[in-house]
Design a protein around this nucleic acid. Structure first.
Lengths: 166, 166
DNA sequence: TATTGTTATACTCTATAACTATA
DNA sequence: TATAGTTATAGAGTATAACAATA
């Protein structure tokens, strides 16, 4: 068998599950916990939507287009944090599937004004339903007050992170 | 310019920054906020360590090996959530760089008992220092109590997510 | 000159499958 | 038979650079 050093872990908030590894200093970092939860969550969503061949970024892109009609590809790229060349591929697929359309902007002919179609909106409803299910499987452990607080903390962190870049 | 629909966003906890897009229903989901923050955090860390050519998973792997001397590659794979074939490449690089070594387990000759070297431990200290800096840039917005609570909530979510899989 | 969108391309990340050596 | 590790390989995911059209 394998021997293990005892490592102090000051920020551990719940008991480790039996058989779990010692996290060492890694356990002191919020970023590690964040990644761990997020990985798990996105794997759950991926396997719940595996039959649709949903490529990365497509869901959130469609959602942002629906919420912001007339959005440009550049604005979309910035919001999802991906290169504009990736956005081209995403919008290509959205158009091919009939979920969104590119229209030339009338005020600036370089820009594409993106719009979700009725089919796209319907598809979104479906995906949101699945996302809600997979999230609830994890979030039902938290009270509504805790959920609200969690969102608030994450928003404050995100705002601080964006500020760092500028 | 672009016109925008007004979309209700019940779980928004802080005011959107000016010029920010409407998140629509996406803003109702914790997973989205989680991903957003985590992406930003990992980009910050990546650019702070860009000069070292740090491949994905290497840092956390080395950290886990250091905290659990004698760890097998299989156990490591499970903990970092990657396939064992990926772990081979990671351990190859750790060994090539002199940060860890493979030793044959004496009780089960199929297993490799992984150990961090002194150089590996020193390298870890360096990386933890950088991680601490990049995290602090974002986390100094939160009080110690809030940080503790955040960790606890994330741990509960992770535990629930793991339970889902089984 | 600068910006929007596009294409080509290359590099990284990751999983699958087939193999070996041990158990 | 089953498990630990390895290799080869293929498919995503992503960024960079060069380009055309428009501002």
């Amino acid at each position: 068998m394998r021997e293990r050093k005892i490592v102090k872990n000051p920020s551990r908030a719940v008991a480790p599950r039996p058989g779990a590894l010692n996290l060492g200093r890694l356990g002191e970092f919020v970023g590690f916990r964040l990644r761990r939860v997020q990985n798990q969550l996105s794997k759950d969503f991926a396997s719940a939507t595996a039959d649709r061949g949903l490529r990365a970024g497509l869901f959130s892109s469609l959602s942002l287009i629906a919420a912001n009609p007339g959005l440009s590809q550049n604005e979309l790229s910035r919001e999802i944090g991906l290169d504009k060349s990736v956005t081209v591929a995403i919008v290509d697929e959205l158009e091919r599937s009939g979920w969104a359309v590119r229209e030339r902007s009338e005020t600036d002919r370089r820009r594409h004004a993106l719009h979700a179609t009725a089919a796209g909106e319907a598809y979104l409803e479906e995906l949101f339903g699945i996302l809600e299910q997979t999230e609830n499987a994890v979030l039902h452990q938290l009270s509504p007050a805790e959920l609200l607080l969690l969102s608030e903390l994450l928003d404050r962190m995100y705002a601080a992170a964006l500020h760092e870049d500028s």
